[in-house]
C-alpha cells in the first residue's frame, strides 16, 4: 500500500533528519515506529503526506509516486491519509464539532465550507465519529475545555472524518498519562482491525509497541536500524536495543 524508497531529508539549516530510509507497509498493518526523540520519526511521518518535502527518494502510495505531484493532486492523496498528533493540534477556540468537521474539508467544495456549511451527511458522519470515540456529548464544548485524553479522541475523530485508508499517528500518546495511552491506542487498534485502516504509529515505549503493533521499524539518527514483526520485538536483545536507542539507554517498562 505504501512504499518508501531511499528517503532522505535535509532541513534547510543542514540538519540531516532521514538517511536513505526504505520500507514497505501492507494494507491493514499496524506499523510501530520506534526510536529516540530526534531520531526522525516525526520527519518520516510528515514526509509521507508531504507536510515536509523530502530531499531525496520516493514515496509510493498505492502504486503511484506522490513525491512530486502538484498541490491539487496532493490534496486528493492527503484526504485519504488521516493524521493524529502528539499535541492533538485542535483549534482550541472552536467547538469540538467544528474541529471534527474540519477533517472533512478535503471533500467539501471550498466555497461552502468557507461559510461554515457542511452537508447533512457530513454532520451525521461527524456525530458517528464522535460516538465511536465516546465523546458525542461534548460536541458543542470548546475544544480547550476537554481533557488531554478527550482532545486526542477528538483528533482521532477528525482523522476518521477523512474516511482514511491510512492513519499516521505521530506520538499520539506522548502527552498523555499511561492509562490514557492504552485507551487512545485501543481506539487506533479498533480502527485498524474493524475498518481495516492501516496505521503508522510512532511510539516511545517498547511495551506499547509490543502490545499494539503488528510490525515495527526502528530509527536511529535518521537511519533505519531495525525492522521486524511482533515476535522480533519481544525478542529484542540488549545489544539490539542499544543499537536502536543508543549506548546510554536503559530498558524500562518492558513486561
Amino acid at each position: 500500500m505504501l512504499k518508501v524508497e531511499h528517503l532522505s531529508m535535509v532541513y534547510p539549516d543542514g540538519t540531516i533528519a532521514l538517511r536513505d530510509v526504505s520500507f514497505e507497509v501492507k494494507e491493514g498493518e499496524f506499523l510501530g515506529i520506534i526510536g529516540l526523540s530526534g531520531s526522525g520519526k516525526s520527519t518520516l511521518l510528515r514526509c509521507i503526506n508531504r507536510l515536509l518535502e523530502p530531499s531525496e527518494g520516493k514515496i509510493i502510495w498505492n502504486g503511484r509516486d506522490i513525491t512530486h505531484i502538484d498541490q491539487s493532486e496532493l490534496r486528493m492523496v492527503r484526504r485519504e491519509i488521516g493524521m493524529v498528533f502528539q499535541q492533538f493540534n485542535l483549534v482550541k477556540r472552536s467547538s469540538v464539532m467544528v474541529n471534527v468537521l474540519s477533517g472533512r474539508l478535503g471533500y467539501t467544495p471550498p466555497s461552502w465550507s468557507l461559510i461554515n456549511r457542511f452537508s447533512r451527511a457530513d454532520r451525521a458522519l461527524a456525530v458517528a465519529a464522535l460516538e465511536r470515540v465516546g465523546i458525542a456529548d461534548k460536541a458543542n464544548n470548546r475544544a480547550d475545555e476537554l481533557s488531554g485524553g478527550q482532545q486526542q479522541r477528538v483528533g482521532i475523530a477528525r482523522a476518521l472524518m477523512q474516511q482514511p485508508k491510512m492513519i499516521l499517528a505521530d506520538e499520539p500518546v506522548a502527552s498523555l498519562d499511561p492509562v490514557l495511552s492504552h485507551s487512545i491506542l485501543g481506539y487506533l487498534e479498533k480502527l485498524n482491525k474493524e475498518d481495516n485502516i492501516t496505521v503508522l504509529c510512532s511510539l516511545h515505549f517498547l511495551d506499547l509497541v509490543q502490545r499494539y503493533s503488528t510490525r515495527v521499524i526502528g530509527l536511529r539518527s535518521g537511519k533505519l536500524v531495525f525492522e521486524g514483526g511482533k515476535k522480533d520485538i519481544a525478542e529484542i536483545s540488549d545489544s539490539r536495543f542499544k543499537e536502536i536507542y543508543g549506548e546510554e539507554a536503559q530498558r524500562l517498562g518492558v513486561e
Binding site: L51, R79, F88, L168
Partner: peptide, 15 residues
Amino acid sequence: GPLEALNATGATRLQ
C-alpha cells in the same frame, strides 16, 4: 499545530 493538521486533511489554503 492546527494549521498542520488541516493541511494534512487535504484542505485548501483558504480552508
